[in-house]
Amino acid sequence: MNALVSRSGLFDDFFKDFAPAFYVRPLHGDALPEPSQIKIDVKEDDAAYTVHAEVPGVPKEDINVSIDGNVVSLRAEVRQHDQKKDGEKLLRSERYYGAVARSFQLPVEVDAAQARARYDNGVLVLTLPKKQGNKTQRLAIE
């Protein structure tokens, strides 16, 4: 029976044997988070949509929300501020920086003038009222 050796396992074992004191293994072996994805929850009631978006570690000044009809776009500038001390050596870094963005389409247009945004503890909460007068109307056939 052939045992399959994954590439990452092979390199992990090599570095563990080569320099056991300087090798830092990930806690669960999970892949790095995808920086291009902002995780969201969207809820709806009769009057509005409520969106919860995870944007941890980003100041509210670096978050941009735009609304165009029924399309909502979120953009954030993620910055990494490293402070290196004398005699310190970086062994592993799983943090990233750059722009992250996410757009999604809602079933009904949003009243952008009445929309509200609040940012607290890394979670952006959007209250997006539905635009009135956009309801589907059935036409009578003559």
Score class of each variant (00 low, 15 high):
Y23E: 10
L90Q: 15
Y97N: 15
V55E: 05
L106K: 03
Q80Y: 06
V24I: 13
S36D: 13
S66C: 06
N70W: 00
Q114L: 05
F15S: 15
D30K: 01
Y23N: 13
D13R: 10
L74V: 07
K130E: 05
Q37S: 12
Q137E: 00
R79Y: 01
V42N: 03
V100F: 08
V125E: 03
A48N: 10
L91E: 14
R75Y: 03
N2C: 03
F15V: 14
A101S: 15
H28M: 02
R25P: 07
L126I: 07
S73Y: 03
S103D: 12
F104W: 03
R116C: 03
P107N: 06
A21M: 09
H28Q: 02
Y96N: 15
H28W: 01
R92Y: 09
A76I: 07
V71Q: 13
R95W: 05
G122L: 01
K39A: 13
L124I: 03
Y23T: 12
I67P: 15
K85W: 05
F104H: 06
Y97R: 13
T136A: 00
D111E: 13
S93N: 13
N2H: 12
V123F: 04
D46T: 12
D62M: 12
Q83F: 06
A117K: 10
Y119T: 04
A115Y: 01
P56L: 00
E88H: 05
F11Y: 15
E44Q: 10
K131D: 03
A117I: 05
K85T: 12
L10K: 14
I38R: 11
Q37R: 10
Y119E: 05
I38Q: 13
A117V: 05
V51Q: 03
E34L: 04
D41T: 11
G122P: 01
N64G: 04
R7C: 11
N2M: 11
K130Y: 08
L128M: 06
I141T: 07
A113H: 02
Y119V: 01
H28K: 04
G9Q: 08
A76R: 07
R116D: 02
R95C: 08
S103T: 08
P59D: 11
R79G: 05
R79F: 04
L4H: 15
D111V: 02
E109R: 10
P129W: 02
G122V: 02
D82G: 13
L91K: 06
E54C: 05
I40P: 03
S103Q: 11
Q80R: 15
A19E: 11
S8P: 08
K85L: 08
K84H: 04
Y23Q: 11
K89V: 06
E109M: 10
T50V: 08
L139H: 00
E77A: 09
L91R: 10
G133E: 00
L124D: 14
K130R: 04
G69T: 02
K131A: 01
V65E: 06
K131N: 00
H81E: 13
P107A: 05
S6G: 14
A115S: 06
P56V: 00
Y23L: 04
Q83N: 14
V72A: 09
V108F: 02
D82I: 08
L27N: 11
H81W: 09
M1E: 15
S8T: 14
A47F: 10
F11L: 15
L90K: 14
E109W: 00
P56M: 02
V42M: 02
P56K: 04
L91V: 06
Q132D: 11
R75P: 06
L128C: 04
G87F: 01
D12C: 03
E142N: 07
A21K: 15
K135T: 02
Q105C: 08
A53M: 09
